[in-house]
């Protein structure tokens, strides 16, 4: 299996007044080209931190990330990021927001071609009629549609989605999941989505990566999701295997996420027991979101 994205021995340490704090420890993951991965875990466990490091927006403390043969050192448009808050520039229209990225990536293309690229993706996400509205006038769901269009329009090697639908109501969320899957299938992108929604992870992903609780969070378990594509929400809900998978994920989150996975004693010293204080968890939450 050739891996498109390889994360090896990834560590993230934050300095605190009480000394360095390891939020993510020894995180290893290989992702195939075209694969859709969901990263789930409790809020504040460090999953967004992992995504930020892949995006190049957060420094890597130790270890490395290789994306299609090149080490990740900085942010760049080869990784399209969809942020939790859609992060559109409110003084621009939806179209201008997408064009900002398109102009950067396709700087050799003619103005007409660039306009067409932006319009194409905006209409694919269903903003064909609203693309010239100021983004501050768009609803939350429309903003996130625009965020998705912006990420895809960069024609990135990889898509990184940081809880993209966390702020949306359930109906909008389901609509946007379909928009996302549709585009993903059309463009054959490799994608990584961070979420804490078990159903979202199962509906979207080929593999669900479960993270243990922080600090010292790492990969706790990986679940293969083999439902046929294109997926149909209704069929999925009738499939007993869906409930088994759901059960697996929820059991992990409720019971096993507190324990680090077992490793051979000679490999490395046993991990320190994770502090159980809820306050600490909150602290990491604020780190992870910055």
């Amino acid at each position: 299996m050739s891996s498109f994205l390889e994360i090896s021995q990834l560590h993230k340490t934050f300095p605190t007044p009480k000394g360095p704090l390891t939020v993510v420890e020894d995180f290893n993951l290989k992702i195939r080209k075209g694969e859709f991965i969901a990263l789930i875990g409790h809020s504040g466990c460090g999953k967004s931190t992992v995504l930020s490091m892949i995006a190049g927006l957060a420094d890597i403390s130790e270890g490395g990330i290789i994306l299609s043969g090149k080490e990740v050192t900085d942010a760049g448009p080869d990784r399209g990021v969809v942020f939790q808050s859609p992060c559109l520039l409110p003084w621009m229209t939806a179209f201008e927001n997408v064009m900002l990225g398109v102009n950067q990536v396709y700087y050799t293309a003619s103005k007409l071609e660039r306009t067409q690229i932006a319009e194409y993706y905006l209409s694919l996400v269903g903003l064909g009629d609203a693309m010239h509205k100021r983004s501050s006038e768009l609803s939350q769901g429309m903003k996130q549609r625009c965020g998705i269009a912006r990420a895809f329009a960069l024609s990135p090697k990889m898509l990184l989605l940081d809880e993209p639908f966390g702020m949306l109501d359930n109906l909008t969320k389901m609509e946007l999941q379909d928009v996302l899957l549709d585009l993903w299938q059309r463009d054959q992108k490799t994608a990584l989505i961070v979420t804490h929604d078990v159903d979202e992870a199962l509906y979207l992903a080929d593999r669900v990566v479960m993270m243990t609780d922080g600090p010292n969070a790492t990969v706790g378990d990986i679940l293969e999701v083999n439902f046929p594509r294109p997926r149909n929400r209704k069929q999925l809900l009738e499939d007993p295997a869906y409930y088994a998978a759901r059960e697996h994920l929820i059991t992990f989150l409720e019971e096993r996420s507190h324990h680090r996975p077992h490793r051979p004693a000679q490999d490395r010293p046993p991990a320190a027991p994770a502090p159980s204080a809820g306050g600490l968890r909150k602290l990491f939450g604020s780190f992870a979101s910055t």
Partner: peptide
């Protein structure tokens, strides 16, 4: 910081970041 992150992801030049963001 989110706006600045947009600029970093798009690799906007310093001048472009200043004027557009």
């Amino acid at each position: 910081q989110d706006y600045l992150n947009v600029g970093r992801v798009l690799k906007l030049s310093r001048w472009k970041t200043l004027t557009t963001i």
